[in-house]
Design a protein around this nucleic acid. Structure first.
Lengths: 348, 348
DNA sequence: CTGAAAGCGCTTACAG
DNA sequence: CTGAAAGCGCTTACAG
């Protein structure tokens, strides 16, 4: 910095414009009534002096901190990071800072966090969860600023929560596969995951809309590992029910299933199409990818943040389900580039 | 909130303690001289009233915003996210907020960002890069608060930058492989990446320390794709030079190389050990992983942030290289669990 | 050791 | 339409 020269203050502007402090303030904030000429004089003076209002003083005078509190369980979690980054970056664009309290660091109890946030006079609070549907405790009643829940559902039905539309994702996958002419659609997923259950339900609903039901009658339920994807895929082949598509509850399962199919001589997608969920492989693969669904977590964080600051007092209660995006890959596109070298098990 | 009851103020505390405002202030901040009894009275009064100083007033009075500015190129980048999250979460633990300006959103030029940060009176600035060694422009001279560069190197040698120790990582890999008895160590990497070049140099240095040199004389240089890993692996086999280990510049290359080796009947790690870099597969794999190096980006962000706020005026100029962590996996542990089902090409 | 007072820079009723 | 003044709640020289 070229010296710590004294910053230009609103008084300087008022003086140069030949008006009082209060007029200068109103002129710059766009409020108040005054002759256009007066306002213009002030604006010009501010420009001349390159006036930048001292945000600290503004905040203090108005009681608005321009800081949004973010309460997160585990900020380094793979799925949490994009949500929080979406929040942070979106708010930054609105010149709002974020104060992030990670419950996993620092052993302070939730009530301490709330107390800190209140003392800090944050203008709003975002609670970011881990994407499961296990309701998180509502803190809305403990503060008098807006609170929004992102990637989790608040215990209180009166709060506003944002979640990826898992049900819609499942339905979308059903429509995608049916649109490709598939009729015997199986489902591999994991138990013990309520948000995965939404995707399953959506799939079933989408099938029902077309007068279909799940192949093999019920989903193959295991864990989230690639190994389970392989096991389940073998089970599908063993059953010999002419399954022509599989929706896997996540990308790991899809990779596992795909390996088994290909190594068993089943053509993907000609014989069996595959769809995953998460769009995670994109992170580590550079080759064409298995068709998947992107939950758009970064965007979800941004949407929740924008809603928090834009909704005035009238927040709509309930869970808002934000649309996911189908990412078409080679595993459902017969004519698409098949990554023989990259994804295939049979190295050339 | 149970009504918008008036917040308790320092005056209330002073009054209850029977002292003046200034004494109350000093007592609570730990400074100033006074009888222990007086101080205790104030502390007790504060506790009784559950006094929480109004941070906005404190900030205004002291000219400290308790906000740190973060300037980032692309906040949704895979490698940038953990750095920024590490920054954000570490600062949050210190009750510092972050104001993140993402240069990729909003077309404001860098100078506008700096002007905004200055008007906001941030207490310090973190510039977060993309991990390449292409120096970023220094903004240190444009502000009068501390600036630290994380995951990038400032153009100015007088600035403090934090980068993963790629050279050390390469050397560490050399030592790891040599410790396992390997002597003919090849290297697959990508061109056009200056930070990858550090890893290569470190590997060569580590080999030299043991009187060895790179197998095949020079690195196999291509791009970052799994496909190139496969191609390079075939090249290694074709050359027939008894290579017994390969350090791949990233995890993609390692996966590709591993596939080729195994499908060609070369045992990993018995015949050829493999090490990658990035520790990315951890994100999507649940099975045992190929040995890799974790650049510890989340931790790097945290370290840079802590340094920013803890270093007073005396920041040490230059680039600080933070240690990476070797993550041992099955691809270098002969006795380790080999993921036959998960990573292998030969599905059982 | 303690207190009265000025000051941080802006906003906002309230008069004129 | 415009301005003088109080106030936001704390910190910090400066006196006593």
């Amino acid at each position: 910095m070229t010296g710590t020269r004294k910053a230009v203050t609103l008084s300087d502007v008022a003086q140069l414009a030949g008006v009082s402090l209060s007029i200068a303030s109103k002129a710059l904030r766009g409020g108040g009534r005054m002759t256009p000429a007066t306002r213009q004089r002030v604006v010009d003076a501010a420009a001349t002096l390159k006036f930048r209002p001292n945000t600290l003083a503004q905040s203090f005078a108005q009681g608005r901190s321009l800081v949004i509190g973010v309460v997160v369980e585990h900020s380094s979690d793979l799925f949490t990071m994009p949500v929080v980054m979406g929040v942070t970056s979106t708010l930054g664009n609105l010149d709002l800072a974020v104060l992030v309290y990670d419950a996993s660091e620092g052993p302070e109890r939730r009530t301490d966090v709330v107390a800190k946030l209140r003392a800090r006079m944050v203008d709003g609070i975002l609670v970011v969860g881990d994407g499961t549907k296990h309701p998180v405790p509502s803190i809305t009643g403990e503060v008098d600023v807006p609170v929004v829940y992102a990637f989790c559902e608040s215990e209180s039905a009166r709060d506003t929560s944002f979640m990826p539309d898992g049900f819609g994702a499942g339905r979308m996958v059903a429509e995608h596969l049916i649109g490709l002419g598939r009729r015997k659609i199986a489902h591999i997923t994991s138990g013990n995951d309520t948000s995965a259950a939404s995707r399953s339900a959506g799939l079933v609903a989408g099938l029902a809309d077309a007068g279909l039901s799940l192949a093999l009658t019920s989903p193959l339920v295991g864990d989230w590992s690639q190994a389970w994807g392989m096991t389940a895929a073998r089970e599908i082949l063993r059953r010999r029910e002419d399954v022509d598509a599989v929706f896997c509850g996540n990308d790991q399962l899809a990779v596992g299933a795909q390996r088994v199919f290909r190594s068993e001589g089943v053509r993907v997608p000609e014989d069996i199409a595959i769809v995953g969920y998460d769009n995670l492989n994109r992170l580590v693969e550079s080759a064409p990818l298995i068709t998947t669904v992107d939950p758009e977590l970064y965007r979800l964080g941004g949407t929740a943040a924008r809603y928090l600051v834009e909704s005035g007092a009238e927040r709509e209660p309930g869970v808002q389900h934000l649309p996911c995006t189908l990412i078409p890959g080679w595993s459902t596109q017969p004519d698409g580039a098949r990554p023989a070298a990259s994804f295939a098990d049979d190295a050339p």
